[in-house]
Each structure stands twice: as structure tokens, then as C-alpha cells.
């Protein structure tokens, strides 16, 4: 399915279960998403999603039981699991390149946004290392930088300013011109079946909600 339409579909579903109180719909979404995950995601990922969510799930359940409404606790726990498994289905088969490519080719998002975000995304490992380096350098001077120290952010943002200039220059020197039309090696299209899936899924959800 087209990455943007898929994201749109999931955003609508997520919004809808945020504002409705149907345990049945949550369970249906949870089970369908879980089956999808079993087919397409790694075993480790599924276990991670199910177990890490237990902590907020138990927390919310007891909070409602002690300070709120017991029935509501069950609804919130099923909603939590519906969110987590639904979210997991998106990233297990779609990459950020697909999403950016589709936004640029099918939805006229300026190419500088698509490629700029993608370029920055590929710097993540460098940033992680930089933050470790900044903390280590501070430790050598007996200064502890925690995540609430402005200095830590200040230094990382300075580094980021440097990288963003370098990366933009690098992209320009590889003939990336802002605003000019581009050719594509990987063409992303929207098929009629994509629209059909979108409509059918959304209608199915309304039907489960109403009946």
C-alpha cells in the first residue's frame, strides 16, 4: 500500500479510537494488528511491544481502579494495546525513504523537505556519538552533564549547526538544487487498490463502532 495513504489511514484510526469508547473495536484492532505483526515483524519486536506496554497498562489500570472508574480502566488498557500494535504494523514494512519519496512524488511536498529530513535522519548515529563525546569531555573536567543541562543542548546544537551546513553544501555539490524538478529511480505510485483498502478499512471500523 502507498506509504502516505497507509499513514493517513492509521492516523484516522488512531484518532478515532482516542475519542471513542468501544472495547470491541480496540480488541478487533489489536487482534488484526497482532496477526499482521506475526506474519511480517520479527519475534523480538512483538515481544518487546507487548511487554514494555505492560508497565503503563498496569499503571493506568490501577490508577483508574483506585482513583477513577474500574470499567474505564479496562477500556484504556485495550486502547493502549490497540495503539501499540497498530503503530508497530506501520514501521515493520515501510521505511522513511518510502514515506519521504511518496510525499514528494505523489503529494507535492517540496523535495528539500523530503531529502533534508532524510539526510538528517541518516546522521542519527553521528549525533548519538556526539552526545556521548560531549558528556565524556565534560566528565574529564569533573562536570556532570545530565539531560536537564542547557550546556549539553547548547553544545549539541552547535555541532548540529555545523553538520547541517556541511550536509547542505554536500547535497548542493552533488547537484541537489532546491525547487528544480527531479527524476526518480524508484517511482512510487498510488494504485486504485490503495484507495479501495483505505475506504473499506475505514467503513469497516465505522460499522464495528455503530453495531
Amino acid at each position: 500500500m502507498n506509504p502516505v495513504l497507509k499513514l493517513l489511514m492509521m492516523l484516522v484510526i488512531a484518532l478515532e479510537i482516542s475519542f471513542t469508547t468501544s472495547v470491541r473495536l480496540n480488541l478487533v484492532i489489536f487482534i488484526v494488528s497482532l496477526i499482521y505483526l506475526i506474519f511480517f515483524a520479527s519475534f523480538k519486536r512483538i515481544i518487546y511491544l507487548l511487554f514494555v506496554t505492560l508497565i503503563p497498562a498496569i499503571g493506568i489500570y490501577f490508577a483508574q481502579k483506585i482513583n477513577g472508574n474500574y470499567q474505564y480502566g479496562i477500556l484504556l488498557v485495550t486502547r493502549l494495546y490497540a495503539f501499540v500494535t497498530l503503530g508497530g504494523t506501520y514501521t515493520c514494512r515501510t521505511s522513511i525513504e518510502d514515506l519521504a519519496g511518496s510525499l514528494e512524488q505523489n503529494f507535492r511536498v517540496p523535495s528539500k523537505f523530503a531529502y533534508g529530513v532524510m539526510g538528517a535522519f541518516n546522521l542519527i548515529e553521528t549525533i548519538k556519538q556526539e552526545i556521548i563525546d560531549i558528556k565524556l569531555a565534560a566528565k574529564m573536567r569533573n562536570v556532570h552533564l545530565s539531560y536537564v543541562s542547557p550546556t549539553l543542548y547548547f553544545k549539541s546544537i552547535l555541532a548540529a549547526m555545523n553538520w547541517s551546513t556541511l550536509l547542505a553544501q554536500g547535497m548542493n555539490s552533488h547537484l541537489f538544487v532546491e525547487g528544480s524538478s527531479r527524476t526518480h529511480f524508484k517511482k512510487i505510485t498510488i494504485k486504485t487498490t490503495d484507495y479501495l483498502i483505505l475506504i473499506v478499512v475505514l467503513i469497516a471500523i465505522q460499522i464495528i463502532l455503530i453495531f
Binding site: V52, I55, P56, K112, F113, Y115, G116, V117, G119, A120, F121, L123, I124, I127, K128, I131, Y147, L152, Y153, S156, I157, A160, M161, W163, S164, T165, L167, A168, M171, N172, F176, E178
Partner: peptide
């Protein structure tokens, strides 16, 4: 500009990475 878009994304990522620790903190 391309440079500012990259910088904006990097700032989001920096906040994201530093607060990845808050995920554990939250739990």
C-alpha cells in the same frame, strides 16, 4: 532553506535522543 530544514530535523533528533533516557525514566 535546505540547511535550515536539516538543522530543524537535527534539533528534533537531539531532543529525541537525549530524552530516549526519559522513556526508561517514565517507566
Amino acid at each position: 532553506s535546505l540547511r535550515n530544514i536539516i538543522l530543524l530535523t537535527l534539533i528534533s533528533i537531539i531532543c529525541g535522543i537525549i530524552f530516549f533516557a526519559t522513556g526508561f525514566l517514565y517507566n
